[in-house]
Write a protein that binds this DNA or RNA. Structure first.
Length: 300
DNA sequence: GGTCCTTTGAAGGAT
DNA sequence: ATCCTTCAAAGGACC
């Protein structure tokens, strides 16, 4: 019953036109995260500086090296790709727009009804950044709040216990244990992660969903529907997060956490994206022949 | 208890 | 320079 309901909602959604020209011929806009990465030798500009530059980054002249940036996930829809092109000496240029939903979504949570304006009670204040990681003062040594930076978590994610008898352990064991118990310094959150953190509760409330995978799909589409100015807010926050992270942990590398989270093999991942495994709704993605890739005329 | 799902972006290694 | 892989968050589902 539930499955039928959500599927009919899904079918309804699929007949909606995509948001703001997606699926037709979306205008290629340099993505903010790419636009914020100047080539080697070019002084690093903040996002705002970049926007305010009298000489904005030109669109690449050579886009012959277009490549599909992400695998097509739902084969019966076209027009939802992320294309990356680049050429020597120029900024990479990525065109991305929503990927098709894998999950059947309630119409009330579909992008058509909710984009671009979020629903809120009249007079309700715009949601504020409340996550501690967004309060850049926290975690700074000497800061009055003295709250540990959220990037630091014990390996177990729980409170650490004191060993009850140190004498029973050999030096090697102790060393290994010490290494294992070393608190993990997490990666700083990127712009989208910060956006998710802020908006997740709202989506959960609106859509009465709890499945993170489904929620993230909604958030992904809402992220694409945001204006550049709205996205810029999060890119700037993410930039400050990275800056603070670098100050707090100068020697830290993202590589430090590699292997700490066991990931599925590539083969397994491909199997899951081509219909071999259940999705978060407990259903199996439809297996179909891959459609002809959609390439927007504006970037051809 | 560990892994998967799902999203975007950042980073690092490989080519 | 470009491509590929991993990990950040989240919580239900599953083994």
């Amino acid at each position: 019953m539930y499955k039928e309901t959500v599927y009919s909602a899904f079918n309804l959604l699929m007949h909606y036109p995509p948001p703001s020209g997606a699926g037709q011929h979306p205008q290629p806009q340099p993505p903010l995260h790419k636009a914020n990465q100047p080539p080697h030798g070019v002084p690093q500009l903040s996002l705002y500086e970049h926007f305010n530059s009298p000489h904005p980054t030109p669109a690449p002249a050579d886009i012959s090296q277009k490549q599909v940036h992400r695998p097509l996930q739902t084969p019966d829809l076209s027009g939802f790709y992320s294309l990356t092109s680049g050429s020597m000496g120029q900024l990479p240029h990525t065109v991305s727009w929503p990927s098709p939903p894998l999950y059947p979504l309630s119409p009330s949570c579909g992008y058509r009804q909710h984009f671009p304006a979020p629903t809120a009670a009249p007079g309700a204040p715009y949601p504020r950044f409340t996550h501690p990681s967004l309060m850049l003062g926290s975690g700074v040594p000497g800061h009055p709040a003295a709250i540990p930076h959220p990037a630091i978590v014990p390996p177990s994610g729980k409170q650490e216990l004191q060993p009850f008898d140190r004498n029973l352990k050999t030096q090697a064991e102790s060393k290994a244990e010490k290494e294992a118990k070393k608190p993990t310094i997490k990666k700083p959150l990127n712009a989208f992660m910060l956006y998710m953190k802020e908006m997740r509760a709202k989506v959960i409330a609106e859509c009465t969903l709890k499945e993170s995978a489904a929620i993230n799909q909604i958030l992904g589409r809402r992220w694409h529907a945001l204006s550049r100015e709205e996205q810029a807010k999060y890119y700037e926050l993410a930039r400050k997060e990275r800056q603070l992270h670098m100050q707090l942990y100068p020697g830290w590398s993202a590589r430090d956490n590699y292997g700490k989270k066991k990931r599925r093999s590539r083969e397994k991942h491909q199997e899951s994206t081509t219909g071999g495994k259940r999705n978060a709704f407990g259903t199996y993605p439809e297996k179909a022949a891959a459609p002809a890739p959609f390439l927007p005329m504006t970037v051809l």
